[in-house]
Amino acid sequence: MAQPILSLRSINKSFGPVHVLRDVNLDVYPGEVTALVGDNGAGKSTLIKCIAGIYTPDSGQYLFDNNEVQVHGPRDATALGIEVVYQDLALCDNLDIVHNMFLGREQKKGMVLDESAMEVMARKTLDGLSVRTVKSIRQTVSSLSGGQRQTVAIARAVLWNNKVVILDEPTAALGVSQTEQVLHLVRRLADSGIGVILISHNLNDVFEVADNIAALYLGQMAAQVRKADVTSNQVIELITTGKSAGVASIGANS
């Protein structure tokens, strides 16, 4: 198997007396979808915030491309090529699709925004993801459907040739066909060589697109397993009890 692009080793994180993450290990492989599952309060959000640099872990190793790195803020994570698509998408409704995709990283000619270059690049990225549902990329985001917004947020994440893209419950608020579209998009992301972390409560989604599954239980990594090696029931067991008989963990969790 390929080397993981991102590895976490023995990550600990506490908030005051609450020990949220205990010795968590996680491996993310390029070209694969790693599903991160776990019950509410298991530590999924804290874990991705540690990856994204929003929280700094109390202890543990953060390896990127086999090199230990220090991530002290969102900018550090962005500089590594890690991009998070949050559940609330963090889009500005009053701006159009191109503006949103380039928000905070506008292309400039001198001090003037290079709108044409941005529009061309945005178009290319959306075409690369085979997105055909958006009529005009100059319409404001407020006029888009939930699935289209998710698409814009994901397209923004891949615009910069990122290596790891974290998707926080991308299908939570979507209808059936839009969920299907977004899952296809997730698959295409991985197929293009990006390491995708997919956080989801929906095991159907997880089994549809994931290559491997990491289950958190009360702040500990219960197991990270290949999808082919487990059944849905075993994953539910991992989520609810933290262990399941006959599950072979991969990576550092074995």
């Binding site: 963090a90 889009l91 409704d93 009053n94 905070g104 506008e106």
Partner: peptide, 24 residues
């Protein structure tokens, strides 16, 4: 309309949290 600063003004007004996460 034509500078990044102006764009950031609109972004902060539209969704300050999104703007902050975009590194603005």
């Amino acid at each position: 309309n034509r500078t990044a600063f102006g764009r950031h003004l609109y972004a902060v007004g539209g969704n300050a949290e999104a703007a902050r996460r975009s590194g603005i």
